[in-house]
Simulated assay, not measured.
Amino acid sequence: MGVALRVRSVLSVTVLAVGLVLLLQPVGAAVTEVRQDSGVLTGIVEYQCTTTGSAEKQDIKVEVALTMPTTATTGEQMSIGWQGTYAEGTGLKAPATGLTTGTGLYAYASISELPGLTSATGVGTLTTVAANQVIPLPTVSVSLKTTPSNAGTATVRPAALNFGTAANAPSIECEVQNRTALTTYPLTVTAADQTGTEPETDTGTETDTDTESDAGTEPETDTGTDGNGKVQQTPSGPAATGGGGERGPDGRVFLLTGSLLILTAATGLLLRRRAWR
Score class of each variant (00 low, 15 high):
56 E>A: 14
12 S>V: 08
175 E>A: 15
77 Q>W: 13
198 E>L: 13
176 V>R: 03
232 Q>A: 15
236 S>L: 14
201 T>I: 06
6 R>W: 02
172 I>N: 00
232 Q>K: 13
62 V>A: 05
139 T>Q: 13
257 T>A: 08
123 V>K: 02
121 T>P: 05
106 Y>K: 07
1 M>A: 02
163 F>R: 00
62 V>D: 03
85 T>R: 07
192 A>Q: 08
199 P>N: 03
186 P>V: 14
275 A>K: 12
36 Q>M: 15
249 P>Q: 10
83 Q>L: 15
235 P>Y: 05
152 G>E: 04
186 P>H: 10
100 T>M: 04
265 A>Y: 12
157 R>E: 00
88 E>Y: 14
274 R>E: 05
208 D>K: 01
113 E>G: 04
262 I>C: 09
13 V>L: 11
13 V>M: 09
232 Q>P: 09
10 V>T: 10
247 R>D: 12
248 G>Y: 07
34 V>N: 06
258 G>C: 05
101 T>I: 06
142 V>E: 07
107 A>I: 02
194 Q>A: 14
31 V>F: 01
117 L>I: 05
135 I>F: 02
220 E>D: 11
102 G>V: 08
202 D>N: 14
211 T>K: 10
163 F>W: 01
92 L>V: 05
30 A>N: 05
112 S>E: 09
43 G>Y: 00
10 V>F: 09
25 Q>K: 14
134 V>L: 15
44 I>E: 00
2 G>F: 03
201 T>M: 04
136 P>K: 12
62 V>I: 15
123 V>C: 09
269 L>F: 06
65 A>F: 05
47 Y>H: 07
138 P>E: 05
218 E>C: 09
189 V>T: 01
216 G>E: 14
188 T>N: 06
237 G>R: 05
165 T>L: 11
241 T>N: 11
224 G>P: 00
255 L>G: 12
262 I>R: 11
98 G>E: 12
88 E>W: 13
8 R>W: 11
2 G>C: 11
192 A>Y: 07
27 V>L: 07
190 T>V: 07
108 Y>K: 05
126 L>A: 13
256 L>G: 08
49 C>V: 04
171 S>V: 06
41 L>D: 08
13 V>P: 07
33 E>S: 15
174 C>S: 06
212 E>N: 12
118 T>S: 10
275 A>P: 03
208 D>N: 13
187 L>K: 00
46 E>T: 14
123 V>S: 10
58 Q>Y: 02
217 T>P: 02
162 N>I: 01
180 T>P: 10
197 T>M: 10
202 D>F: 11
268 G>Q: 10
152 G>Y: 00
71 T>Q: 10
139 T>H: 15
203 T>S: 12
259 S>E: 14
268 G>T: 15
238 P>Q: 13
65 A>M: 09
120 A>M: 10
77 Q>G: 03
258 G>D: 13
160 A>Y: 08
222 D>E: 09
268 G>V: 15
213 S>G: 12
75 G>V: 02
74 T>N: 03
179 R>L: 11
170 P>A: 03
95 P>W: 01
189 V>E: 00
110 S>C: 15
62 V>H: 01
264 T>L: 10
21 V>P: 15
247 R>H: 06
